[in-house]
Amino acid sequence: MSFGDGQEPSDGFGGTGHTRTRLPEGGGDVYGGARRGGRSSSRSLITVVGVIVLLIAAIAFANRGGDDSSSADGAGSQPEAASTAASGEKPVQAKAGGIPAGFARDEQGAESAAANYAVTLVSADILKPTLRAEIVRQVFVADKQAALADKFNKAYSKEFLSNIGLDENGNATAGNTYVSRTVPVGTKVTSYADTSATAEVWCTGLYGTAGTDSTNPVTSDWFTMTLQLRWVDGDWKVDSFSQKDGPAPVPGDDKASSADEMAKAVEEYGGFTYAR
Rank of each mutant, 00 (worst) to 15 (best):
A34L: 13
A34T: 08
A34G: 07
R35I: 14
R36M: 12
R36Q: 13
G37T: 14
G38F: 14
R39Q: 15
R39F: 04
R39P: 01
S40Q: 12
S40C: 07
S40M: 11
S41F: 13
S42Q: 09
S42R: 08
S42K: 05
R43Q: 11
R43G: 15
S44C: 00
S44Q: 15
L45W: 09
L45C: 04
L45E: 05
I46S: 15
T47H: 15
V48T: 13
V48I: 15
V48N: 09
V48Q: 14
V49W: 05
V49E: 04
V49Y: 06
G50S: 04
G50N: 06
G50T: 02
G50A: 09
V51K: 15
V51G: 05
I52T: 02
I52A: 04
I52P: 00
V53A: 13
L54H: 06
L55S: 12
L55V: 14
I56D: 04
A57T: 14
A57Y: 08
A57I: 13
A58K: 10
A58L: 13
A58H: 11
A58S: 10
A58W: 12
I59D: 04
I59L: 14
A60F: 08
A60P: 00
A60I: 03
F61N: 01
F61W: 06
F61G: 00
F61D: 02
F61Y: 05
A62C: 01
A62E: 03
R64Q: 11
R64L: 08
D67V: 02
D68N: 14
D68K: 10
S69M: 01
S69T: 10
S70Q: 15
S70V: 15
S71E: 03
S71C: 03
S71K: 03
S71T: 15
A72M: 02
A72Y: 04
D73L: 12
D73F: 11
G74W: 09
A75W: 10
G76H: 08
S77P: 02
Q78V: 05
Q78G: 06
P79F: 07
E80T: 01
E80R: 03
A81I: 09
A81T: 15
A82Y: 05
A82R: 08
S83I: 07
S83P: 00
S83H: 12
S83Q: 12
S83E: 13
S83N: 12
T84G: 09
A85E: 10
A85C: 02
A86W: 12
A86T: 15
S87Q: 01
S87F: 01
G88H: 13
E89Q: 12
K90H: 10
K90N: 14
K90I: 02
P91D: 06
P91H: 06
P91F: 07
P91W: 05
P91Y: 05
P91C: 12
V92F: 06
V92A: 12
Q93A: 15
A94N: 05
A94G: 00
A94Y: 01
K95C: 00
K95E: 09
A96M: 02
G97R: 10
G97P: 07
I99M: 03
I99R: 03
P100I: 02
P100L: 03
P100A: 03
P100R: 02
A101V: 07
G102N: 04
G102L: 03
G102E: 04
A104F: 00
A104G: 10
A104E: 11
R105L: 07
D106F: 05
D106W: 01
E107G: 00
E107Y: 00
E107F: 00
E107K: 06
Q108M: 06
